[in-house]
């Protein structure tokens, strides 16, 4: 079973993503900070990470992405940024950090499923 890591500081958003993805068979992990995301990524080696950007605690989503992508064991992990920051400059920063895709909040759960299935398919 493929593994998906949901990273967001807000419980409700994590739950929303989880509920959205429940229709397919994925093992879902949750992280509430950048630091936690890096830790879980290293232990679980997920196939996909949905990454929020603005999170308290010193390591934001971009930094977490950079750290995960710099780990050779995790370089095939697909990272989708899921952020309320939607400006061009934010997308560029995401790309620079190594993210594979960028989704802007608020998002449509249906669109997210389609995207995830496309990636995992």
């Amino acid at each position: 079973m493929k593994k998906i890591l949901i990273t967001d500081d807000q419980l409700e958003v994590r739950e929303l993503v989880e509920v959205t993805l429940r229709v397919d068979d994925y093992t879902i992990f949750q992280a509430s900070s950048g630091e936690e995301a890096v830790r879980i990524a290293e232990t679980e080696k997920p196939d996909l990470i949905l990454m929020d950007v603005m999170m308290p605690g010193g390591i934001d989503g971009f930094e977490a992405t950079r750290r995960i992508k710099s780990n050779p064991e995790l370089k095939n992990c697909h990272i989708v940024i899921l952020s309320a920051k939607g400006q061009q400059i934010d997308r560029e920063r995401g790309r620079a950090a190594g993210a594979d895709d960028y989704f802007v909040k608020p998002f449509s759960p249906l669109e997210l499923i389609t995207k995830v299935e496309e990636i995992m398919g």
């Binding site: 958003v13 509920v19 920051k85 449509s108």
Partner: peptide
């Protein structure tokens, strides 16, 4: 401000669609 507005909107839009 855009971010602050989008965060609650994410839940509202997402859960209502669900």
């Amino acid at each position: 401000a855009a971010h602050e507005l989008r965060t609650p909107l994410t839940s509202i839009q997402g859960f209502s669609e669900i």
